[in-house]
């Protein structure tokens, strides 16, 4: 085995996929498990989620989102299609670049949503920062809807990522 460009490209892809599994796994945990379960949990047990589990999950969630994007951008540069993909394949009309480009843009939007909408609003909703009683449900709603947007985007995003490598 040689530690050449092919190996390092594989290695970065492996880190990209590891990070991505953690990110999207936690996103789906929030949307498929935690949020729908909250109304079924007795009030006196809710702090176990809001004070312990959710903050820990959000820590891994936001940092894995960032590392997925960083390793993904490095990977695209190593594969030589970063610019073509970011221009959605419109510069060279290559379907593979269009596919990976759509996936990259959706991933970038999702990462922006995590760091600049979901995380700041979750801090308010979970009581990690002081806000008025009026502001708290609004922040929870904003975080929840944005998390749903990311869940929706994760479906075409993963199609784009996998199809770029296997169909085009």
């Amino acid at each position: 085995m040689e530690f050449d460009h092919t190996w390092w490209t594989f290695f970065i892809r492996w880190l990209h996929v590891l990070s991505g599994f953690m990110w999207i796994g936690l996103l789906w945990y929030f949307n498929f498990v935690q949020t729908p379960s909250m109304p079924k949990i007795p009030d006196e047990q809710k702090p176990a989620i809001s004070k312990v589990i959710a903050p820990a999950a959000l820590f891994w969630f936001r940092w894995s989102a960032l590392s997925t994007i960083i390793f993904g951008l490095i990977l695209a540069q190593m594969n030589g299609y970063l610019t073509e993909a970011l221009s959605l394949g419109l510069s060279d009309h290559v379907a593979k670049h269009a596919a990976i480009g759509f996936g990259m843009w959706m991933g970038l939007i999702m990462m922006f949503n995590v760091w600049f909408i979901i995380w700041p609003n979750q801090k308010k909703a979970l009581g990690m920062v002081e806000v008025s009683d009026e502001e708290r449900p609004k922040a929870a709603r904003r975080a929840g809807v944005t998390s749903r947007v990311n869940t929706m985007l994760s479906i075409p995003m993963l199609y784009a990522m996998v199809s770029a490598q296997n169909l085009y």
């Binding site: 498929f32 009309h93 379907a95 809807v145 985007l153 479906i155």
Partner: peptide, 30 residues
């Protein structure tokens, strides 16, 4: 009604977006 208010609406919206995206990819790559 916002389709993102329910999990099933979220998934169906994601699948609709996927179909639109595939059409665009094939149009760009043609």
């Amino acid at each position: 009604m916002n389709p993102l208010d329910s999990l099933s609406g979220t998934i169906i919206s994601g699948l609709v977006f996927t179909v639109i995206m595939v059409v665009l990819i094939n149009a760009i790559g043609a």
